[in-house]
Deep mutational scan, measured.
Amino acid sequence: AVSDRLIGRKSVVMEAISPQNSGLVKVDGETWRATSGTVLDVGEEVSVKAIEGVKLVVEKLE
């Protein structure tokens, strides 16, 4: 599936994300709604860990 190619990809937070609120990330020039178990600020680099419905699950790059 097209979405499977996103797992493991680097992306950049475009709208802040917290455990309570989804935000936005940009992956390969496309904007996606995303969630995370931690707070992520605009501009942080993250990695796509999973896809749940139409949202990406991301975490901060170490």
Results as ranks from 00 to 15, higher is better:
residue 1 A to D: 11
residue 2 V to P: 15
residue 2 V to Y: 12
residue 2 V to N: 13
residue 2 V to E: 10
residue 3 S to Y: 13
residue 3 S to D: 09
residue 3 S to A: 13
residue 4 D to F: 09
residue 4 D to G: 11
residue 4 D to R: 14
residue 4 D to N: 14
residue 4 D to A: 14
residue 4 D to V: 12
residue 4 D to P: 09
residue 5 R to C: 12
residue 5 R to P: 06
residue 5 R to Y: 10
residue 7 I to F: 06
residue 7 I to C: 08
residue 7 I to E: 00
residue 7 I to M: 07
residue 7 I to R: 06
residue 8 G to K: 04
residue 8 G to Y: 03
residue 8 G to E: 02
residue 8 G to W: 02
residue 8 G to I: 04
residue 8 G to Q: 03
residue 8 G to M: 04
residue 8 G to N: 06
residue 8 G to V: 04
residue 8 G to T: 04
residue 8 G to H: 04
residue 9 R to S: 07
residue 9 R to V: 06
residue 9 R to C: 10
residue 10 K to R: 13
residue 10 K to M: 12
residue 10 K to I: 14
residue 11 S to R: 00
residue 12 V to Q: 06
residue 12 V to S: 04
residue 13 V to W: 02
residue 13 V to A: 02
residue 13 V to Y: 02
residue 13 V to M: 02
residue 13 V to C: 04
residue 13 V to D: 01
residue 14 M to S: 06
residue 15 E to H: 07
residue 15 E to A: 11
residue 15 E to K: 12
residue 15 E to V: 12
residue 15 E to L: 10
residue 15 E to S: 11
residue 16 A to H: 08
residue 16 A to D: 03
residue 16 A to K: 14
residue 16 A to P: 10
residue 17 I to D: 02
residue 17 I to W: 02
residue 17 I to G: 03
residue 17 I to N: 01
residue 17 I to A: 03
residue 18 S to D: 07
residue 18 S to H: 07
residue 19 P to F: 06
residue 19 P to W: 05
residue 19 P to H: 05
residue 19 P to C: 08
residue 19 P to Y: 05
residue 19 P to T: 05
residue 20 Q to M: 12
residue 20 Q to D: 11
residue 20 Q to V: 09
residue 20 Q to F: 12
residue 21 N to P: 02
residue 21 N to I: 13
residue 21 N to G: 10
residue 21 N to E: 10
residue 21 N to V: 14
residue 21 N to H: 14
residue 22 S to M: 13
residue 22 S to E: 15
residue 22 S to N: 10
residue 23 G to S: 01
residue 23 G to W: 06
residue 24 L to G: 03
residue 24 L to Y: 11
residue 24 L to D: 01
residue 24 L to C: 09
residue 25 V to T: 03
residue 25 V to N: 02
residue 25 V to W: 00
residue 25 V to L: 04
residue 25 V to Y: 01
residue 25 V to C: 06
residue 26 K to F: 14
residue 26 K to L: 15
residue 27 V to Q: 02
residue 27 V to K: 02
residue 28 D to E: 08
residue 28 D to C: 15
residue 28 D to G: 08
residue 29 G to Y: 05
residue 29 G to S: 07
residue 30 E to I: 11
residue 30 E to F: 10
residue 30 E to W: 09
residue 30 E to G: 06
residue 31 T to F: 14
residue 31 T to R: 07
residue 31 T to G: 02
residue 31 T to A: 07
residue 31 T to Q: 08
residue 31 T to C: 15
residue 33 R to C: 13
residue 33 R to K: 11
residue 33 R to P: 14
residue 33 R to N: 08
residue 34 A to Q: 03
residue 34 A to C: 07
residue 34 A to L: 00
residue 35 T to E: 08
residue 36 S to M: 02
residue 37 G to S: 15
residue 37 G to N: 15
residue 38 T to W: 10
residue 38 T to E: 14
residue 38 T to N: 10
residue 38 T to L: 08
residue 38 T to F: 11
residue 38 T to G: 09
residue 39 V to D: 10
residue 39 V to H: 13
residue 39 V to C: 14
residue 39 V to E: 10
residue 39 V to I: 12
residue 39 V to W: 15
residue 40 L to K: 00
residue 40 L to D: 01
residue 40 L to C: 15
residue 40 L to W: 07
residue 40 L to Y: 06
residue 41 D to I: 11
residue 41 D to K: 13
residue 41 D to S: 13
residue 42 V to M: 06
residue 42 V to L: 06
residue 42 V to I: 10
residue 42 V to D: 01
residue 43 G to W: 04
residue 43 G to C: 08
residue 43 G to V: 01
residue 43 G to P: 01
residue 44 E to M: 11
residue 44 E to D: 10
residue 44 E to G: 02
residue 44 E to R: 04
residue 45 E to R: 09
residue 45 E to N: 08
residue 45 E to H: 11
residue 45 E to T: 13
residue 46 V to H: 00
residue 46 V to Q: 02
residue 46 V to Y: 01
residue 47 S to G: 07
residue 47 S to F: 15
residue 47 S to D: 06
residue 47 S to M: 15
residue 47 S to C: 15
residue 47 S to W: 15
residue 48 V to R: 01
residue 48 V to E: 01
residue 48 V to W: 03
residue 48 V to A: 00
residue 48 V to D: 01
residue 49 K to C: 12
residue 49 K to R: 11
residue 49 K to Q: 08
residue 50 A to Y: 08
residue 50 A to N: 06
residue 50 A to C: 09
residue 50 A to I: 04
residue 50 A to Q: 06
residue 50 A to F: 07
residue 50 A to R: 10
residue 51 I to Q: 06
residue 51 I to A: 05
residue 51 I to F: 07
residue 52 E to I: 13
residue 52 E to D: 14
residue 52 E to K: 09
residue 52 E to L: 12
residue 53 G to C: 04
residue 53 G to H: 05
residue 53 G to M: 04
residue 53 G to I: 03
residue 54 V to D: 15
residue 54 V to P: 09
residue 54 V to F: 14
residue 55 K to Y: 15
residue 55 K to C: 15
residue 55 K to M: 15
residue 56 L to G: 00
residue 56 L to I: 04
residue 56 L to V: 06
residue 56 L to F: 03
residue 56 L to Y: 03
residue 56 L to P: 00
residue 57 V to H: 07
residue 57 V to S: 05
residue 57 V to N: 04
residue 57 V to E: 04
residue 58 V to I: 03
residue 58 V to Y: 00
residue 58 V to A: 01
residue 58 V to K: 01
residue 58 V to H: 00
residue 58 V to R: 00
residue 59 E to V: 11
residue 59 E to G: 08
residue 59 E to W: 06
residue 60 K to A: 08
residue 60 K to C: 04
residue 60 K to F: 04
residue 60 K to I: 06
residue 61 L to K: 07
residue 61 L to Q: 08
residue 61 L to V: 10
residue 62 E to F: 13
residue 62 E to I: 12
residue 62 E to P: 12
residue 62 E to D: 11
